[in-house]
C-alpha cells in the first residue's frame, strides 16, 4: 500500500515532467550550468513517527516564482484496543522568495525561503476492537506555512516548515457537532528534486 502510494506520487510528478522531456535537446557546452530542477517528490518525516506515510509531489512554475504541490497521505495511528485508517489529500501553493539557499548549488530553483497556503482533507475511520464498531471523522485543515529548503547534495532536499493551521472536524456519523480550532503546526520533509 505504502509503496503504491509513493509510486503514485512519483507518477504524478513524472507525468508533469513528460512535456519537458519531449522538448528538443539543448546544445550544451562544458561551461553551461545544469538546468535547475523543476520537480520534487518529498516525504514528510514527522509522519513516519505517527504511523503515517505522507508524500508530496511538487512542480515549479519559475516564471511566477511559484510551485504547486499535491499530497497524498495514509495514517494508521490508533492501536491498543482500537485501530484506525486515515486517507488524506492536500494541495498547496508556494511562493519562493530568493530561490537560492545556503549549502545549495541550485539557483533559480525551489530552494530557500518560501511562504505557502495549503488545504488538506482527511477521512478517518476508527475501529473499536472491543465493541466491533466503527466511527468516522473528516478533517479539513487550511494552513499558512513558511519554510526553508536546502539541497545539500545533488537533488536531495530538506525542508523544515512551520505555520498556523485552522482545522474543522466533522463527525461522519452525525453524533458530534463540527469543531473548529486553530493551532501552530510544524513539519520537516525530505525529498529529491529533478
Amino acid at each position: 500500500m505504502r509503496a503504491a502510494l509513493a509510486l503514485g506520487a512519483l507518477a504524478v510528478a513524472l507525468a508533469g515532467a513528460a512535456p519537458a522531456a519531449a522538448q528538443p535537446s539543448q546544445v550544451t557546452t562544458d561551461a553551461a550550468p545544469a538546468p535547475p530542477p523543476r520537480y520534487d517528490v518529498a516525504l514528510a518525516l514527522p509522519g513516519l513517527g505517527a504511523a503515517a506515510l505522507a508524500v508530496d509531489a511538487e512542480r515549479d512554475l519559475p516564471a511566477r516564482k511559484l510551485s504547486l504541490v499535491t499530497g497524498l497521505a495514509v495514517r494508521r495511528a490508533a492501536s491498543g484496543d482500537y485501530s484506525s485508517s486515515t486517507l488524506a489529500i492536500g494541495v498547496e501553493a508556494r511562493r519562493w522568495l530568493k530561490r537560492r539557499a545556503i549549502w545549495t548549488r541550485h539557483r533559480d530553483a525551489m530552494v530557500g525561503w518560501y511562504v505557502g497556503g495549503r488545504l488538506d482533507v482527511s477521512l478517518n475511520r476508527l475501529h473499536d476492537d472491543v465493541m466491533d464498531s466503527d466511527h468516522g471523522q473528516m478533517v479539513v485543515a487550511a494552513s499558512a506555512l513558511a519554510g526553508y529548503r536546502i539541497a545539500p547534495w545533488r537533488g536531495l532536499e530538506l525542508t523544515p516548515m512551520a505555520g498556523v493551521t485552522w482545522r474543522t472536524e466533522l463527525d461522519l456519523d452525525g453524533r458530534l457537532p463540527a469543531a473548529r480550532r486553530a493551532g501552530l503546526t510544524f513539519g520537516l520533509a525530505a525529498g529529491w528534486m529533478f
Binding site: 514528510a44 514527522p46 509522519g47 513517527g49 505517527a50 504511523a51 503515517a52 505522507a54 508530496d56 499530497g71 497521505a73 495514509v74 495514517r75 494508521r76 495511528a77 490508533a78 492501536s79 491498543g80 482500537y82 486515515t86 488524506a88 492536500g90 495549503r118 488538506d120 482527511s122 478533517v139 479539513v140 485543515a141 494552513s143 516548515m161 493551521t165 485552522w166 482545522r167 493551532g183 501552530l184 503546526t185 510544524f186 513539519g187 520533509a189
Partner: peptide
C-alpha cells in the same frame, strides 16, 4: 494508543505534520 502523539503535541491536520 495514538502513534505520533505526545503529551501536548499530536498529529496535525495534515498527517505529515505535527500540531
Amino acid at each position: 494508543e495514538l502513534a505520533g502523539a505526545g503529551h501536548v503535541v499530536g498529529p496535525g491536520g495534515s498527517p505529515g505534520r505535527q500540531d
